[in-house]
Measured scan of single mutants.
Amino acid sequence: RKESAFKSMLKQAAPPIELDAVWEDIRERFVKEPAFEDITLESERKRIFKDFMHVLEHEC
């Protein structure tokens, strides 16, 4: 699924995404990734990013 691929892309980011990361600041790192391009709505990208950050916070 496209959403899973997007989350995997975020999870495998190098360097890892920090807990205090803001979408607008890290977005540039992913613009050339196929998983990024597959999610065409920016609002959807932000939503998935927020979900990812929520999970990340609870893993720590």
Rank of each mutant, 00 (worst) to 15 (best):
R45H: 02
M53E: 03
H58G: 13
E44L: 04
A35D: 03
R45Y: 00
L41C: 10
P15N: 03
K2S: 08
D51N: 14
D20K: 10
L19T: 13
E3H: 02
V22C: 14
P15Y: 02
R29D: 03
T40W: 07
K50N: 12
H58R: 12
E59G: 12
Q12L: 11
F49H: 03
F6K: 00
E59I: 03
P15L: 04
M9W: 02
W23P: 01
L19Q: 14
R47N: 09
L10H: 01
F36N: 03
A13S: 08
E24I: 04
A35C: 06
F30W: 04
E24Q: 05
M9L: 06
K11H: 10
H54L: 13
E24K: 08
T40A: 15
E57M: 09
M53Q: 13
R47Q: 14
E37Q: 12
A5L: 15
A13N: 00
Q12H: 10
L41Y: 15
P16E: 07
K32A: 10
S43Y: 03
L41H: 12
R47T: 08
E24G: 08
R27S: 03
F30I: 02
R27L: 02
A21S: 08
A14I: 08
M9C: 02
S4I: 13
D25C: 08
E33K: 06
R29M: 08
L41Q: 12
H58M: 12
E59M: 04
S43P: 06
R1G: 15
E28I: 12
H58W: 09
E57Q: 11
E33M: 07
R45S: 00
W23L: 00
R1M: 15
K2L: 05
K7D: 06
F36Q: 00
F30S: 00
I39D: 02
A13C: 09
V55A: 12
K11G: 09
W23G: 01
D20M: 10
L56E: 10
F36E: 01
P15C: 04
D20E: 10
D51V: 07
D38V: 11
K2P: 03
I26V: 04
E44K: 03
C60R: 10
F30N: 04
C60Y: 11
R47E: 10
P34N: 13
K46M: 06
I17K: 00
I17Q: 00
E37N: 06
A35G: 05
E3P: 01
L19H: 08
K2H: 05
K11L: 09
L19R: 14
L56W: 10
V55S: 14
Q12Y: 07
A14G: 05
E18R: 13
F36P: 00
A13Q: 04
R27W: 01
P15F: 03
K50I: 11
K50D: 12
K7N: 12
K50A: 10
E59L: 05
E18N: 10
T40K: 14
E28S: 12
K32M: 10
M9H: 00
R1D: 15
H58I: 09
L10W: 00
D25P: 02
A5Y: 12
R45D: 00
R45E: 01
V22I: 08
K46T: 06
A5W: 04
V22W: 05
D38R: 11
S8Q: 14
V22G: 09
D20H: 08
E57H: 15
T40E: 13
I39K: 05
S8T: 14
I48T: 02
E37P: 03
H58F: 09
E28G: 12
K7Q: 11
E44D: 09
A21N: 05
C60I: 11
E28D: 09
R45G: 01
P15T: 08
I17M: 04
P34E: 11
K7F: 15
D25T: 11
E18H: 15
E57P: 08
I39R: 01
R1L: 05
P34I: 12
F30E: 01
P16G: 06
E57F: 06
T40N: 06
F49R: 01
F6R: 00
E3F: 02
E37A: 11
W23F: 01
P16H: 05
K2M: 08
S8F: 06
F49T: 00
E33C: 09
M9R: 01
E37S: 11
A5E: 15
L41K: 13
L56A: 11
V55I: 14
C60A: 05
A13Y: 03
I48K: 02
R27Q: 04
L19N: 10
V31N: 10
S8H: 11
S4V: 15
V55Y: 09
K7G: 04
A14C: 07
T40P: 14
E18M: 15
D51I: 03
W23D: 00
A14M: 07
F49A: 00
E57G: 11
M9V: 03
I17Y: 01
R47G: 07
L56V: 11
I17H: 00
D20S: 11
W23Y: 05
M53P: 01
E44G: 03
E57C: 06
R47W: 03
D38L: 14
D25L: 07
I39S: 00
V31W: 09
Q12P: 00
I39P: 01
R27T: 02
K2V: 04
T40G: 11
R29W: 03
V55H: 09
F30K: 00
V31Q: 13
F36T: 01
E37D: 13
D25M: 06
S4K: 15
D51H: 07
K2Q: 09
W23Q: 01
E59K: 15
C60V: 07
Q12K: 08
M53N: 05
A21Y: 03
K46W: 04
E42G: 02
K2Y: 01
D51Y: 05
E18L: 12
I39A: 01
A35N: 03
P15S: 04
D38E: 15
F36S: 02
E37C: 15
E57N: 06
H58C: 14
M9G: 01
A35Y: 03
L19M: 13
R47L: 06
S43L: 05
L10K: 00
H54A: 13
S43K: 12
A35R: 08
I48M: 14
P15E: 07
D51W: 03
I48V: 07
V55R: 10
K11M: 11
K46G: 05
P16D: 06
L19G: 13
C60F: 09
S8E: 13
F6I: 00
P34Y: 04
E28R: 10
L41D: 14
I39Y: 03
E44N: 09
P16K: 13
E28Y: 11
S43W: 05
R29S: 04
H54C: 10
S8G: 14
A21D: 15
D51R: 06
I17E: 02
K32R: 12
I17P: 03
L56K: 12
M9T: 02
A35M: 05
P16V: 07
H58S: 13
K2E: 11
E18G: 14
H54Q: 08
I48W: 07
D20F: 09
V31E: 14
I17T: 02
P15R: 03
I39V: 11
I39H: 01
M53C: 10
F36L: 02
E57T: 11
K11V: 09
E3Y: 04
S4H: 08
D38G: 13
F6D: 00
E24D: 11
L56S: 10
I17L: 13
A35L: 02
A5F: 12
R27N: 04
R45T: 02
V22K: 12
S43A: 13
F6V: 01
W23M: 00
E44C: 06
K2G: 07
E59R: 09
F6E: 01
K46F: 07
A13E: 01
A14V: 12
E28F: 06
E33T: 11
K50R: 12
E33V: 06
Q12D: 07
P15K: 05
M53F: 02
P34M: 06
E28C: 11
L19V: 14
K11Q: 11
S43V: 08
L56F: 12
K11R: 12
I39Q: 01
E18Y: 08
K7A: 08
V55C: 09
L10T: 00
A21M: 08
D38P: 05
E33P: 02
D25G: 08
R47K: 08
A13T: 11
A5S: 15
P34T: 10
